Simulated scan of single mutants.
Amino acid sequence: MGAGIAEVCARAGLDTVVCEVDAVAARAARDRVAASLDRAVRRGKLAPDAAADALARTVFTGHLDDLADRQLVVEAVVENPAAKTEVFAALDKIVEDPDAVLATNTSSLPVMRLGMATGRADRVVGLHFFNPVPVLPLVEVVTSLHTSAATTAAVEEFAARTLGKTVIRSQDRAGFVVNALLIPYLLAAVRMAESGFATAADIDTGMELGCAHPMGPLKLADLIGLDTVASIAESLYDEFREALYAPPPLLLRMVEAGLLGRKTGRGFHTYDQA
């Protein structure tokens, strides 16, 4: 997700800095962005010169301090409350411009919690992209009780005019609009497979051919990452305490086993990692 967000920013002509946990991860991030740009060129979606320019205007670093001069920071770390809160507390001290916006790409965590980790909660907002970011046109803008109208207007203009995305607004509730509707559907598919009612392949084929979905629910869960699906489900269940949001045991066991979907080569389906 972070690489995708960086790519769309760079393709929009913005001076972009990507911060990873260390230099090794930063090099891997550069490789991901370069590979994605190359795919866009091969598919005729992007001119070779535009791809080269986008990569040239993107800096990859392993040091959070390199974000000090940014006007907008979009956090996209692991979907873990402690990790995200730690990042926002650090950014509050590092980012020099008091008017800079600190945005989170969280799928489900409260924006308010992250804002309160800073001394500028009015400048903290949810800016939730969808994977793959260069392809999917939607962004959810999520405002907390403290997010100012100026911050909201700024990120909506950034997403819509600068990046060319379609913006929808959501209140600061777990799951926001899309995942509050999507995750119960994915969990229902997991429960169906868990019970032996149907195979993963048949569940996916049923929804693809019977409901014209471009991707079946278990393939989609694998694409999102089963750890991320479980994390979003847990956030939804913690907030609403409704059974439809509770992650099924099979999903939790697969996460414990490291079977996370496409990124590990195996989830409900098997994938070529070459």
Rank of each mutant, 00 (worst) to 15 (best):
T166S: 12
T270W: 00
G206M: 11
A56H: 15
M1W: 15
L182D: 09
K263L: 05
G261E: 14
V229H: 12
A47N: 05
D99A: 15
L251D: 03
E208T: 01
R27F: 03
A34F: 09
A34K: 04
L127A: 12
L127W: 07
A174D: 08
T147I: 08
D22N: 14
A76L: 02
L109F: 14
A83R: 09
A56P: 11
A40T: 03
A6H: 02
G216I: 02
V135E: 15
P247H: 04
E140C: 12
P248E: 09
L114W: 02
A29L: 10
G196Y: 11
E239Y: 00
L136Q: 13
D227Y: 14
L109V: 05
D38F: 01
Q273N: 07
T58N: 10
G267S: 11
R266S: 07
A212P: 02
K219C: 08
F268D: 01
L259H: 01
T270M: 02
I203F: 09
D204P: 06
G225K: 04
V17Y: 03
A56E: 15
T118K: 07
L55V: 10
A243G: 04
A212L: 13
E256T: 01
G261M: 15
R57C: 10
E156R: 11
R169D: 06
E234R: 08
E86W: 06
